[in-house]
Every structure is written in structure tokens, then in C-alpha cells.
């Protein structure tokens, strides 16, 4: 009974905040198969860890921590066979920007292309920054001090600026 309630609660939260997982997958995977696998792995890790989630932090902050830890500690070989037990191919496609204006879509694509040139750590930090997490939260997720977060964000901004200028 308790398990069912826990599962229901988890599924509702995971459904509401699945955008977080999609974003992390898009950030760290180049192809569709890897994105599907990572999406599933993050969900499994979130579900396994959910009983210990006591609401001390926001669910989104907690989910980002699990998702980033899973994505960065993950390793995908370049050549791999497609998984048969994954999603059926219709889901998890590249985002549908039909609600975005042409200019917004172009800017978003530009941003993603620039972010793709960053290192894994830089991607994690800038993603949390763009999601408006506080320096304190970013520091706790990454495991560095608030000052270091500030230093790193400034460096990433400069790097992104120069990439975007090209």
C-alpha cells in the first residue's frame, strides 16, 4: 500500500518534471539511441533514490543532482547496437518548436550548438545557471564552493560569447 502510494507520487512528479530529464539527455547525448538509454537510466536512478527523498530540497534540485550525476558518470561506447527494449521511436525526438517563433527557434538552436562545445562540467554548471538555481544550490550539486561557481560561470559566459561570435 505504502509502495503504491510512493510509486504514484513518484510518477506524478516524474511526469511533471520530465523536461529536466529531457534537457539533461539532450545536453549529454549526441544521438537518439543514447538519449533514450540515458532517459531510462536517469528515471531508474530517480525511482531507486526516491524513497530517500525527504523534501529537504526542491524536487527539481534533487532531480538535477541525480540526473547530472548519472549523465556524467555514464559512459557510452561509440559503436553500439540499438536497444530493443527502449522506447518505440516515436518519443524523445528532438523538441517540437512549433510554438516558438522562427527567431526564438533559431536562437535556441544557436545556444545548443554553442553549449555542445563546452566540457561536461561546464554543461552541468551552465544548465543549472540557466534554470536559475542559486549559486549555493549549484555549489552543493557540483561539490565546489559558491565562489568557485561564480568564477566558473564567468569563464563559461566568456567562452560561450566567443563561440557565439564565430
Amino acid at each position: 500500500m505504502k509502495e503504491e502510494r510512493l510509486e504514484k507520487e513518484f510518477l506524478t512528479l516524474a511526469d511533471t518534471h520530465q523536461g529536466i530529464i529531457h534537457k539533461v539527455c539532450r545536453m549529454y547525448c549526441d544521438n537518439e539511441t543514447d538519449r533514450k538509454d540515458l532517459f531510462q537510466d536517469i528515471l531508474i536512478q530517480l525511482w531507486r533514490a526516491f524513497p530517500s527523498f525527504k523534501g529537504q530540497s526542491k524536487f527539481t534540485t534533487w532531480a538535477y543532482r541525480v540526473a547530472i550525476n548519472t549523465a556524467i558518470s555514464n559512459y557510452r561506447k561509440q559503436k553500439r547496437r540499438p536497444r530493443l527494449d527502449g522506447l518505440n521511436g516515436e518519443e524523445l525526438q528532438i523538441p517540437d518548436y512549433s510554438n516558438f517563433s522562427f527567431e526564438q527557434e533559431e536562437q535556441t538552436q544557436l545556444l545548443h550548438r554553442a553549449i555542445n562545445k563546452l566540457t561536461k562540467i561546464e554543461k552541468a554548471i551552465i544548465m543549472l545557471y540557466l534554470e536559475e538555481h542559486s549559486y549555493e544550490e549549484i555549489a552543493a550539486i557540483i561539490g565546489i564552493t559558491k565562489t568557485n561557481v561564480g568564477v566558473k560561470i564567468n569563464r563559461i559566459k566568456i567562452k560561450l560569447k566567443s563561440i557565439l561570435k564565430r
Binding site: Q18, K23, L43, D85, D96, Y97
Partner: peptide, 29 residues
């Protein structure tokens, strides 16, 4: 723009999420 992008991913339905949580993990650890 970044925050608005959460809404543009094609959503995975709850049934599929439930199925995935029961699958075998393939992560590195």
C-alpha cells in the same frame, strides 16, 4: 528561452515512465 524549452519536448506518458522504472539499468555504475 531555455526555461520555455521544457514544454517543447514530446512528453513520455506515465505508463511508459512506469515501464521504464521497472527496466534493467544500463548506466555505467
Amino acid at each position: 528561452l531555455w526555461q520555455a524549452e521544457s514544454a517543447v519536448f514530446q512528453r513520455v506518458d506515465i505508463g511508459e515512465i512506469r515501464r521504464m522504472t521497472k527496466s534493467k539499468a544500463t548506466d555505467a555504475l
